[in-house]
Computed example of a mutant assay.
Amino acid sequence: MASSVDPRFGVALRHFRERRGLSLRSLGQLAHRSKSHLHELEAGLKAPMVDTARHLDRVLGAGGVLARLVDAPVDHVAEAGELRARVAASDVSGDVLERIEQGTDDLASSYPTLTPVDLLPLVRRHLAYVGRLLDGRVTLAQRRRLLVAGGWLAVLRATVHIDLRQRTAAAAHVRAARDFAEHAEHAEIQAWCLETRAWAGLTQGDYRAALDLSEQAQRVAPRGSSARIQATAQEARVWARLGDVGAIRRALDRVERLTANLPVPERAEHHYRYDPAKAAAYTATTLAWAGDPGAEQVARAVLGDLDPHGDGGARPRRSASARLDLGLALVAAGQPDEAVALGAQAVASGRVVPSNWWRAVELLTKVEQTGVPEAAMLRDLCTEYTPGQRPPADRTTG
């Protein structure tokens, strides 16, 4: 995704549409635009044209707000460069450190529930606030706390950009997070920067780079830290894509040892605090990708824990991914009908983020190869929801 897409446009469009009580379909009829095109605009998957923004302003009575957002696009790279320059400043001020740290934890805990396009403006705002405070004066101890908060926010922002497939912006903010971490001498944030780059490589099909970065992250991460566990689990997933059964098992064994007797953290939904449920979910993904016969049982247990009532649960993004994992396992087990149903639920939930879309494509490809007629329904859903409105089979699965 190009860095010129301002995520505020999608948030504003959704606000004015919902204020009018309109669905995407009804707005499409009023504005003479397709539902899928409006979905892409709201999700930040497509940059709006100025004429389109002005037309939607008139239809929704938005008073020119949408057009102004298009006329003043966000330069993510410039923002990241400004943050990196501020990290080296020595005179800072601020008396709200506890509130900043609380806000940082709140945002990291919102990652599993908020859509990327809704979370990104919030992270940007908090990160800009930290940047302003780094222009003032505080004690060395206070300055380090600001740097640590900035590091967490920058790596979270990079992760959200990866979810939106905004690669240039993601890379810029990983570099900014690394600078924060180096100045704060914070090894765990440094490790998360490496792990985040590994995840980006995995989503882009660059498995060897992802493997190297996962191993680097494990070496940098403090003993017993969430970053070390996550990087080890990430390594297992990379080996699954590479098809090395022995390496998969060794990596999963290390994850099991690292998570043995792991307590549930105070905020289990926190993106940077590993919890037993995440360990199980990563194992299910790894086994499903590897075509392991045990994948179905693990994936069913994970989905049952995440979404016991079938409504998405408290972590709808994880639930959508769990459905894709179970679907893939079921195809391998010769049960494509149920795999189609699970894939349809995942796609229609709207919780499969752009960086994970290839996983839905992979499931579609697998079920179509079985010849099951129900696959046509899944293809229709994928065509409706896929970024760019291109047929899923034309995309690389990585």
Rank of each mutant, 00 (worst) to 15 (best):
R143G: 05
R223S: 07
A158R: 05
I162V: 06
R125N: 01
A221R: 12
I189P: 08
R178M: 01
L153D: 01
C193Q: 09
A169Q: 11
L153H: 00
G205H: 00
A198Q: 11
L242W: 04
D135I: 03
A260P: 04
R219P: 10
R165I: 09
V148W: 01
R249A: 15
L133G: 04
A198F: 02
T168V: 15
D212P: 13
G246L: 08
L213M: 06
V160K: 00
A233N: 01
H186L: 04
Q216F: 08
A187K: 03
I248Q: 15
V155A: 00
E215K: 03
A172N: 07
T232C: 09
A176N: 09
R250K: 10
R249H: 11
R250F: 05
R219T: 12
G243N: 01
A210F: 13
R165P: 15
A260D: 08
A251L: 14
E195P: 15
A231C: 09
I248A: 12
L194H: 02
A233L: 11
I248S: 12
Y207M: 03
V130N: 05
C193S: 04
P222A: 01
R137F: 11
A184S: 03
G131F: 08
G201F: 01
Q230R: 12
E182P: 10
E215A: 10
A200S: 13
